[in-house]
Design a protein around this nucleic acid. Structure first.
Lengths: 237, 237
DNA sequence: AACCTAGGTGTACGGCGTACACTTGTCAAG
DNA sequence: CTTGACAAGTGTACGCCGTACACCTAGGTT
């Protein structure tokens, strides 16, 4: 991975190469393992050299987000606000799924870069172009919240209440016992967790189809927006 | 803050005292400043002493969340699922606003403690008791997402694109120029950001009423849930 | 009086972000 | 071709972090 020309001639580092390397590294080893030191090693340079191209780690993360935003499709043309928004959110989601590091990073961003503001601006533009009032657009953006980035907080990822080390997978009978206890303690959780209408044989399995759940909520919101819009929503309904 | 009895007799530390001190400290100085060392100092003990009461920092944070969850009201009785859910979410939100550290902490929690599972279980129970199918309940929980905790990702907190040091507040005319440039570059953002129908004189001001936006989105979802429920929703609509 | 043990201590390690002073490589002007 | 300026890259060091591990010590039980 160390970038070097023939005969020891170093390839000059650029901000872009740093950012691209950071994205690739985060894709590969996870964002929590990306440190300035590790990234420097990856591009074949001493840690402090990175600071000639990014002011600090925050700015590095901002730059990574910019690269992510560039992967999101522009608004579809000639399709009405609703499919336009829907398509774009799903495009954002695809980008997000390609880069699992993006969710935690987006959540912690505090200053918006121009690229991010551009995205938001054109996103807002879809509603305004669709005839939404400025006010309703404002509320609607809040209602979408982080869904405009293609994600929501995942509530149940792996119901594993008791701390157990992953390596030795618990034997089936212990597993069953655990599930039974689980069902006894948290009957409602157990019901919705197991009854996700997925016919894979496993008892609990992957639990649910994230993509389906995401679109379910997205469409619920879009339908709600549509209704408000249709009835000429004005502040305080 | 150092806890010590008369004549140098140390007050024995307990897990509960550690957790309560952690919550109080996080309330006071912010979660990012809470380190094991700082917390130890706060309770008058050497850092490693804390590890006799919590296994590691993750468990400390889990324990703090448990304390938070305990502050959320139990489900209201005899009021139908919709107001019950609404009230409870708003109660969670109040707890969350009392403890600003809670949002980032909740977002990063990976294992659910029994207290958290209890909360989720009784939360789910509100829908089931209201006659929701298990399936619909599942989807509905996903749609709520982190809103069940009383928060959503805040999209616009302070539109400050160019890095500027906060201490010297920019002079009014520079501020105006910045806003003008902002409006030129991101016209749509500018429109919804300024037109939040808040009559405080300031040009951009606090921007919007978070509580209103939160309830707007919450009610939009609850109305959507109601509609699906009323029309006897079954998988894949 | 002897012992056990839970709670508290001290030292140390490997990681992190990054400040600061330095050398080196590249290219433009003389 | 030389020179010098400036950007890129280096090396060292600081102060933080979480926590492993060996040790001490006070209280309570036998």
């Amino acid at each position: 991975m160390v970038q070097q020309g023939e005969g020891g001639q170093r390839v000059r580092l650029t901000r872009d190469r740093v950012l691209e390397a950071a994205v690739a590294l985060a894709d590969e080893i996870g964002i929590e393992a990306v440190s300035m030191r590790r990234l420097a090693q990856e591009v074949g340079v001493v840690p402090m050299a990175l600071y000639k191209h990014v002011a600090n780690k925050e700015e590095l993360l901002d730059g990574m987000v910019d690269l992510l935003v560039a992967e999101i499709d522009p608004p579809a043309r000639d399709v009405g606000w609703k499919p336009a928004v829907r398509l774009r959110v799903l495009s954002a989601r695809r980008a997000l799924l390609r880069h699992p590091w993006a969710r935690p990073v987006l959540e912690t961003r505090v200053n918006k870069t121009p690229a991010v503001l551009d995205y938001m601006d054109s996103f807002i533009g879809m509603f305004l172009a669709g005839g939404f009032s400025v006010d309703l657009t404002h509320h609607v953006m809040h209602a979408l919240g982080s869904r405009m980035w293609g994600f929501t907080q995942e509530l149940f990822q792996e119901p594993a209440p008791a701390a157990a080390e992953p390596p030795p997978a618990p034997p089936p009978e212990a597993m069953a016992a655990m599930l039974g206890q689980m069902a006894a303690l948290y009957p409602n959780v157990a019901r919705v967790a197991t009854a996700s209408a997925h016919d894979d044989g496993s008892v609990v399995g992957p639990g649910c189809d994230d993509q389906f759940e995401f679109e379910f909520a997205l469409d619920l919101l879009l339908d709600g927006f549509e209704r408000l819009h249709a009835q000429g929503w004005s502040s305080r309904s």
